[in-house]
Simulated scan of single mutants.
Amino acid sequence: MIVYDLECREGAHRFEGWFKSSDDYVRQQERGLVTCPHCGSGDVAKAVQAPRLARKGNQLPEAAPPARAKPPAPGTPAAPVANAPLPPQAAELMQALATMQAEALKSSRYVGQDFAKDARAMHYGERDAEIIHGQATATEAKELIEEGIGLMPLLFPVVPPEQAN
């Protein structure tokens, strides 16, 4: 994988692009597939960037002085930051979703690794239908969907009953 720093010439937006190879970048650029994620412009070029050199295993990184962030220009939307706290509305929504999932699981039976087998048996009338939850691989889930068996991934991890405190 090659990571290029790219820059939109129209809005001077900088962003990263990941490519399989330098030839892959050229092919995508020629086909017009490299666009600015901020404004959608196709006028994008590689930006000047520092080389990325790996350190030797016996070298410790030098402590960098804390970077001073310059304040954004007025009217500039804030960029999303992965380690920033969630906005209050998002935190409330996540809590509400977690509560709804917990309530739904109270009327469901945990079947563990037998989820795909049990879902199939109920779908084909080999056993009584009931609400179940458990574990399935991505392949098993895809096969169930292809067979027309309804399922839904849980939004939050569930601790198996035998592992709960």
Rank of each mutant, 00 (worst) to 15 (best):
R68E: 07
E30P: 01
L105Q: 03
T137L: 04
A104P: 00
I132A: 00
T76F: 05
R127W: 03
R27K: 15
E130V: 10
G57I: 07
I2L: 15
G134P: 00
Y25H: 13
N165T: 02
Q163M: 13
V26Q: 11
H13L: 02
Q28D: 03
M1T: 13
V158F: 04
P85T: 12
K117F: 14
A78I: 11
A64Q: 13
P72S: 08
G11V: 05
L33A: 11
A96L: 10
G125T: 04
A79F: 05
C8N: 01
G134I: 09
A102L: 07
V3M: 11
A104H: 09
E147F: 06
A45P: 01
M94Y: 03
L60E: 06
L53V: 12
N165L: 11
P71R: 14
D118V: 14
Q135F: 11
D114T: 04
E140C: 07
P85Q: 13
G150L: 09
L144T: 05
A12Y: 06
H123M: 09
V34N: 01
A119Y: 04
V81A: 08
P160R: 12
Q113T: 08
L53S: 04
Q135E: 11
A73W: 00
A116E: 01
N83M: 07
V159Q: 09
Q163H: 12
L53M: 12
K106Y: 02
A116F: 08
G11E: 03
I145R: 12
P161L: 14
G148P: 00
F19Q: 09
R27Y: 07
S108T: 14
A138E: 05
Y4G: 01
M152H: 08
A119P: 01
Q163S: 10
S107R: 13
K117L: 15
L93G: 00
I2N: 08
P153V: 12
I149W: 03
P88H: 08
L155W: 06
M100D: 08
A64C: 09
Q95H: 09
R127L: 07
G42P: 03
A102G: 08
G150H: 01
E16W: 15
V44C: 01
D118S: 05
Q163P: 01
L97H: 02
A73V: 09
A138H: 05
P65D: 07
G150D: 00
R127M: 13
H123S: 11
Q113R: 11
T137P: 01
P61Y: 05
K46C: 02
H13S: 04
S41Y: 05
L93N: 00
D43R: 14
V48F: 11
C39N: 03
T35N: 08
Y4S: 06
Q49S: 15
V44Y: 00
A102P: 02
P88C: 06
R55A: 09
P87D: 00
A136L: 06
E92W: 03
P153S: 07
M122E: 03
I2K: 15
G75E: 02
Y110L: 12
V111I: 08
S108A: 15
E30L: 15
S107T: 10
P80T: 11
F15Q: 10
G11F: 03
Q101N: 07
V48M: 10
C39L: 05
A164N: 04
D118T: 10
S108H: 13
G148F: 03
V34C: 02
A78C: 04
P77H: 09
D118H: 07
E140P: 03
T99K: 10
A47I: 13
Q89L: 12
